[in-house]
Design a protein around this nucleic acid. Structure first.
Lengths: 199, 199
DNA sequence: CAATGTGAAACCATTCACAGCA
DNA sequence: TGCTGTGAATGGTTTCACATTG
């Protein structure tokens, strides 16, 4: 199968979410332009990277298009991919909710913090562990993705540990820039960094 | 002055953060490649978009490079830009801390929630207001950027209000895709969306 | 006729190759 | 020699123009 260019992939992921919230049976590329600001011709090109056999006319069938995207981009795998939260400060704790990941291909399988007192105080249905057990639990639970929300001073060290345990992708909520390693993808998502990207 | 391509701008913003945490006096493009994974030649091209008069040799002077980026990208304005949080659920509340924005060009000038009980319970040094006063306070306090953290069902409606009050950029923490309007920039940053972009 | 699908053109970003400087 | 700076070449993305289809 042909590879989908990264910008197209990003838009298709967003489009699949848009379609979930769109109630009409059919949707045209013009309508998508109106709802998102992407040029209609770009939208059609993006969609053309999906299963080409299917021919749509008079607009796309909303549900068929959504399913085609989800299937092609593996957004609905048979078995969900496990992720974890590393660091349960304010931000880490605010993400500690399984339902946030309900409609995603991910499952929140664990969260880690070095402070046992903190772990005892938090009530949640997500399994909590001391950071000492990070490697063991990541391997045991087949965790492949991590949400890094430790304090800035531990960020690079923790990221190195995550890399060495075979983590495939990291959402970096710290203010530090993390070193890239091989295939591991990293997205920088601290609020101040994201705000600066709005400038 | 020539315009900086968006990908270069993103890297330069990250680079300015990297330099803040880098303790040696000089840094080479090779070293930056090692720390970030960006090709050294890309790094040099990015830097070439900054003030060209300056000639660097034997590597860049860390502090001079950092200041050059900050100045060129307006990361250290005389007067900070005001932003606000809209919606004080778990995520909104976790971002309710001035210090998160200390080293950024932004200042957290207000936060909004419709629930007066909630507002009374939260203790913070950020001014809190009922959502009813959103327009008035945005105009009064010259707020130009917003962190949208309301529940999904109110997302599009709230974004339309923010647009109509002249907001220039939105960090969208909801799971909805927001319509683009004119110049307003929107960054989608809900955890499940970001995770999907790691795939 | 009103839509999609798609090769070709235009545009933009990255990488290369090498000149220039201390 | 070891580094930066930069025009030129490459590679990738978006847009255009138009053939195609129900």
């Amino acid at each position: 199968m042909k590879r989908i260019p990264p910008p197209s992939k990003r838009r298709l992921i967003a489009l699949s979410k848009l379609l979930e919230q769109f109630s009409e049976e059919k949707i045209t590329s013009q309508k998508i332009e109106e709802l998102t600001g992407w040029k209609e011709t770009t939208v059609r090109k993006d969609i053309s990277y999906l299963k080409p056999g299917i021919f749509f006319h008079g607009g796309y069938t909303t549900s068929a298009l959504k399913e085609s995207i989800q299937q092609e981009l593996c957004l609905l795998p048979e078995k969900k991919l496990n992720c974890c939260i590393v660091g349960l400060g304010k931000i880490g704790e605010s993400l500690l909710e399984r339902s946030l990941f309900d409609k995603s291909p991910f499952s929140l399988a664990a969260a880690f913090d070095p402070n046992q007192n903190r772990l005892d105080l938090i009530k949640t249905d997500v399994p909590l562990f001391a950071t000492i057990d990070l490697e063991q639990k990541i391997r045991q639970l087949s965790i492949e993705y991590a949400i890094l929300a430790v304090s800035d001073d531990k960020a690079v060290f923790m990221a190195e540990r995550l890399h060495s345990y075979g983590i495939k992708g990291i959402l970096n909520y710290t203010n530090k820039v993390l070193p890239a390693h091989g295939e591991t993808k990293i997205i920088q998502c601290s609020p101040s960094f994201l705000l600066e990207n709005l400038l």
